[in-house]
Simulated scan of single mutants.
Amino acid sequence: MSKWIKTIVVVLVVGFCLYYLFNRPEDAAMAVKSFFGAFDAVGRFFVELAK
């Protein structure tokens, strides 16, 4: 892809994230918690695997 297409895609993604954050803050918070919760689950898996 050319540089200007990448720039447009990034601007659209950031714009959507900001729109979602300001219109549905509770849902946005739950999405962030779920995202980081997945890393926590992977970390616990490897800790248990190492025991």
Rank of each mutant, 00 (worst) to 15 (best):
N23S: 11
V32K: 02
L12H: 01
V9A: 07
Y20C: 05
G37D: 04
S2Y: 06
S2N: 15
S2G: 13
K6S: 12
A38D: 12
A50V: 03
V10M: 06
L18K: 00
G15D: 01
S2R: 07
Y20G: 04
A41D: 09
V9T: 04
F39H: 06
A31T: 06
K6F: 11
M30D: 11
K3S: 08
I8L: 12
G15N: 01
V9S: 02
F16V: 10
A50M: 08
R24F: 15
F39E: 05
S34L: 07
V47F: 15
F36S: 10
F36C: 05
L18C: 06
V13T: 03
F36K: 01
E48K: 11
F35C: 05
I8N: 01
D27Q: 15
W4P: 08
K51P: 07
W4N: 10
I8M: 04
F39R: 03
E26C: 12
M1R: 12
V47W: 15
L49F: 13
A50W: 10
K51T: 04
F46N: 05
R24Q: 14
V13S: 00
D27T: 07
L12M: 07
G15F: 02
M1Q: 10
F45K: 07
E26Y: 15
W4F: 09
M30T: 06
A50T: 03
F45L: 13
F22M: 05
D27M: 14
S2Q: 04
L49R: 07
F35H: 08
V32C: 03
V13M: 02
D27N: 13
V13W: 02
V42I: 15
S2K: 06
A29S: 10
K3P: 08
L12T: 04
Y19D: 02
C17P: 04
D40I: 13
L49I: 06
P25G: 00
N23G: 09
S34G: 09
C17K: 03
S34A: 07
I8Q: 02
F46I: 08
P25S: 00
M30L: 12
S2P: 11
V13G: 01
V14F: 09
R44A: 13
M30F: 15
K3L: 10
L49T: 05
L12N: 00
F39M: 10
K51Y: 07
V13Y: 04
Y19Q: 01
K6T: 06
M30N: 07
L18G: 02
V14D: 00
D27E: 13
F45W: 11
A29Y: 14
